[in-house]
Design a protein around this nucleic acid. Structure first.
Lengths: 243, 243
DNA sequence: ATTTAAATCTTTACATCGTAAAGATACGGG
DNA sequence: CCCGTATCTTTACGATGTAAAGATTTAAAT
């Protein structure tokens, strides 16, 4: 528990700094202060980046419900209203963080695609990488796909999620051994992409929420989530509907 | 907008009732007051049920983020702390409401299964009913599958969700033309259930969050979500993996 | 180089939320 | 008829998001 009364003032002696007279300014080490300079100047230097890193840490440590504006500000050792000037509001911060997640996620998927050789292997590797990312970063995945407070009109988030989706579509196209256009899709192509995405996203969500445990418990001894995914994807296959 | 200052006192003139002397008690219509009695007695009669109905209304009107304990109390015309005595805390209320949702959902799925005749039709009808329920009750579906504050150890919720899942499993078994045991599953059976559930759940989540619009927009003119679902499920098929 | 505007960060304030505790009221068993 | 108990209200507290005003540093303009 260890509830902190009021805001966490311990991380930074604000009162001492507040009554500091202006003559102490000269003792700053450099004009453009760097991080880990020992001192805590009024201007942080790159608080934007620091807040995003703090947010990622809070998300991994306390999960999605613990990811609040004030918690992030505490983690960064800064006043609770500071994030406002860099992200506008909570939606802004969460959206920028989700954009980072989509970039990480897209990179992991691309690596998985590159590691496989044959088209069927490629699909399976992608599916496993998809679930593996979500299991390794459940908070981030929840933020990306389950949060109500994301603003996809923000350029960074829009671009990152679009790129991630384009990778998925390209992967499905490759497993069907045909080119996927950016502009238009046939119904078969659209269905293939929707099927692959729905299957792996649904599996991931159910797995993260513990809804698959009933199935896993009734499965043969020692059946893991990955084995279930393997069996599930294999029987679905990446083959085109018309042989 | 229309923000209310402080709590909404307008729904019930608390002050007038508070200083009412005890002699006015006799004018109550009946000993066991019924709803819509015109008067607002101190004891509600069946606040438990009334709160659940109010919660469902708030959920449909304002969505999941608007579903707060205080909003439900306002909707029911009762003090903000009243729900505590019937549901313990927010988790309790949400869990009981989710149980209602699972019962509605299970009934809709059962009806869909009953309306179809052949096994392949049955699978398709179930899938469409699944998505249709979520589209008709997006808030409830979100509560059931996306809420962090549900307590599945509560008997009503546990039982309702278990029953809903059992219906799904039975449906998958029927489409494979084999009996599904309550105790143990073969890996093929487990994979078939996980595949059907993941596919339709993933599709539903992506659809509700607007993530499929990119696919639908690039699809042939006039492609609806239902058509996409149809094409998606048809190519997946309910056939057993070993013909 | 000095003054001034802008950017950055803190403090203060407020409405809302969940929850706990204490007070008021009505019901039901003795 | 009376008193214990269940039901409901009031009051209170800490937490959160957000707005507004003050403090401080940087950057620009003259």
């Amino acid at each position: 528990m260890a509830r902190l009364s009021r805001e966490n003032k311990a991380s930074r002696p604000a009162t001492a700094r507040a009554r500091r007279p202006a003559k102490a300014v000269a003792e700053r080490p450099t004009r453009r202060r760097r991080k880990s300079s020992g001192d805590t100047p009024y201007h942080h230097g790159d608080l934007h980046e620091a807040l995003l890193k703090a947010a990622e840490q809070v998300l991994e440590r306390d999960g999605l419900p613990g990811l609040t504006l004030r918690a992030v500000a505490r983690e960064a050792g800064v006043s609770h209203a500071a994030p406002t000037h860099h992200f506008g509001d909570l939606t802004g911060l969460l959206s920028e963080l989700a954009a980072i997640g989509f970039r990480q996620f897209g990179a992991a998927m691309a690596a998985a695609r590159a590691s496989a050789t044959t088209p069927p292997e490629r699909g399976m590797a992608s599916a496993k990488a998809y679930v593996a990312y979500a299991q390794a970063h459940p908070g981030m995945y929840g933020l990306m796909f389950r949060s109500e407070r994301l603003d996809y009109s923000r350029p960074s988030l829009h671009e990152a999620s679009e790129a991630s989706f384009a990778g998925l579509a390209r992967g499905v196209g490759a497993s069907r051994q045909e080119q996927i256009s950016e502009e238009s899709l046939s119904l078969d192509q659209a269905a293939a992409i929707a099927r692959a995405w729905s299957l792996v996203h649904g599996f991931t969500m159910l797995l993260l929420e513990g809804r698959l445990s009933k199935i896993l418990n009734r499965s043969p001894e020692g059946t893991s989530a990955e084995m279930l995914l393997d069996a599930m994807v294999r029987s679905t296959g990446g083959r085109p509907p018309r042989p």
